[in-house]
Lab assay of single mutants.
Amino acid sequence: LSDEDFKAVFGMTRSAFANLPLWKQQNLKKEKGLF
Protein backbone atom coordinates (compact mmCIF):
# COMPACT_ATOMS: atom_id res chain seq x y z
CA LEU A 1 0.00 0.00 0.00
CA SER A 2 1.14 3.52 -0.67
CA ASP A 3 1.17 5.92 2.27
CA GLU A 4 -1.99 7.54 0.91
CA ASP A 5 -3.79 4.19 0.57
CA PHE A 6 -2.61 3.16 4.00
CA LYS A 7 -4.05 6.31 5.53
CA ALA A 8 -7.33 5.87 3.63
CA VAL A 9 -7.73 2.25 4.76
CA PHE A 10 -6.63 2.52 8.39
CA GLY A 11 -7.45 6.17 9.06
CA MET A 12 -3.98 6.77 10.50
CA THR A 13 -0.41 7.15 9.37
CA ARG A 14 2.04 4.27 9.20
CA SER A 15 3.94 5.65 12.19
CA ALA A 16 0.76 5.85 14.28
CA PHE A 17 -0.09 2.30 13.22
CA ALA A 18 3.42 1.09 14.08
CA ASN A 19 3.00 2.49 17.60
CA LEU A 20 -0.05 0.30 18.23
CA PRO A 21 0.37 -3.00 20.08
CA LEU A 22 0.90 -5.92 17.69
CA TRP A 23 -2.44 -7.55 18.56
CA LYS A 24 -4.22 -4.32 17.69
CA GLN A 25 -2.38 -4.06 14.36
CA GLN A 26 -3.41 -7.63 13.55
CA ASN A 27 -7.04 -7.01 14.52
CA LEU A 28 -7.17 -3.95 12.26
CA LYS A 29 -5.66 -5.91 9.37
CA LYS A 30 -8.22 -8.67 9.83
CA GLU A 31 -11.06 -6.13 9.98
CA LYS A 32 -9.91 -4.62 6.70
CA GLY A 33 -9.44 -8.02 5.06
CA LEU A 34 -5.71 -7.53 4.54
CA PHE A 35 -4.64 -10.77 6.16
Rank of each mutant, 00 (worst) to 15 (best):
residue 27 N to Y: 12
residue 9 V to G: 04
residue 34 L to R: 08
residue 13 T to Q: 13
residue 30 K to D: 09
residue 24 K to I: 08
residue 2 S to T: 15
residue 13 T to L: 02
residue 2 S to W: 04
residue 12 M to I: 10
residue 16 A to M: 11
residue 11 G to H: 07
residue 35 F to S: 15
residue 3 D to M: 12
residue 27 N to E: 13
residue 13 T to V: 05
residue 30 K to C: 10
residue 27 N to H: 08
residue 8 A to D: 06
residue 4 E to Q: 15
residue 3 D to L: 10
residue 32 K to R: 11
residue 34 L to S: 11
residue 22 L to D: 14
residue 17 F to S: 02
residue 24 K to C: 07
residue 30 K to V: 09
residue 27 N to V: 09
residue 16 A to P: 01
residue 12 M to T: 05
residue 1 L to R: 04
residue 9 V to Y: 07
residue 11 G to W: 00
residue 7 K to R: 07
residue 17 F to W: 04
residue 24 K to A: 10
residue 33 G to S: 11
residue 32 K to F: 03
residue 4 E to F: 14
residue 35 F to H: 09
residue 10 F to V: 07
residue 31 E to N: 09
residue 6 F to H: 02
residue 32 K to I: 05
residue 11 G to S: 04
residue 17 F to Q: 01
residue 2 S to G: 07
residue 17 F to M: 05
residue 5 D to F: 07
residue 25 Q to W: 00
residue 10 F to E: 04
residue 34 L to Q: 13
residue 1 L to W: 06
residue 28 L to K: 01
residue 7 K to L: 12
residue 21 P to M: 00
residue 15 S to I: 10
residue 11 G to M: 05
residue 4 E to M: 15
residue 26 Q to M: 11
residue 20 L to C: 02
residue 29 K to M: 10
residue 7 K to I: 03
residue 23 W to P: 12
residue 20 L to A: 03
residue 20 L to H: 00
residue 26 Q to L: 06
residue 31 E to L: 05
residue 35 F to G: 12
residue 22 L to V: 11
residue 10 F to I: 06
residue 31 E to A: 10
residue 9 V to H: 09
residue 35 F to R: 11
residue 12 M to P: 01
residue 26 Q to E: 15
residue 22 L to R: 11
residue 12 M to K: 03
residue 35 F to E: 15
residue 25 Q to Y: 00
residue 8 A to F: 10
residue 6 F to K: 00
residue 11 G to N: 06
residue 16 A to E: 14
residue 26 Q to P: 01
residue 28 L to G: 01
residue 9 V to R: 11
residue 23 W to Q: 15
residue 23 W to H: 15
residue 9 V to I: 09
residue 1 L to G: 08
residue 13 T to I: 00
residue 4 E to C: 11
residue 3 D to V: 07
residue 29 K to P: 08
residue 1 L to F: 15
residue 33 G to M: 08
residue 7 K to H: 08
residue 28 L to W: 04
residue 25 Q to V: 03
residue 15 S to N: 08
residue 8 A to W: 03
residue 32 K to S: 09
residue 21 P to E: 04
residue 22 L to W: 10
residue 10 F to R: 01
residue 24 K to L: 10
residue 25 Q to T: 01
residue 11 G to Q: 05
residue 3 D to E: 15
residue 20 L to I: 05
residue 34 L to M: 10
residue 14 R to N: 02
residue 11 G to F: 04
residue 5 D to P: 01
residue 19 N to S: 12
residue 5 D to E: 14
residue 26 Q to G: 08
residue 23 W to D: 13
residue 23 W to K: 14
residue 19 N to K: 13
residue 27 N to W: 08
residue 18 A to T: 12
residue 5 D to C: 07
residue 7 K to C: 07
residue 4 E to S: 15
residue 12 M to H: 07
residue 4 E to R: 15
residue 8 A to P: 02
residue 20 L to S: 02
residue 18 A to I: 04
residue 29 K to A: 11
residue 19 N to F: 14
residue 7 K to M: 10
residue 20 L to F: 02
residue 33 G to A: 12
residue 10 F to D: 06
residue 23 W to M: 09
residue 25 Q to E: 01
residue 6 F to G: 01
residue 7 K to N: 05
residue 14 R to E: 10
residue 22 L to T: 14
residue 2 S to H: 00
residue 15 S to Y: 05
residue 27 N to P: 00
residue 34 L to A: 11
residue 8 A to K: 14
residue 18 A to H: 09
residue 9 V to A: 13
residue 21 P to Q: 02
residue 29 K to V: 07
residue 34 L to P: 15
residue 4 E to H: 03
residue 4 E to N: 09
residue 23 W to L: 06
residue 18 A to M: 13
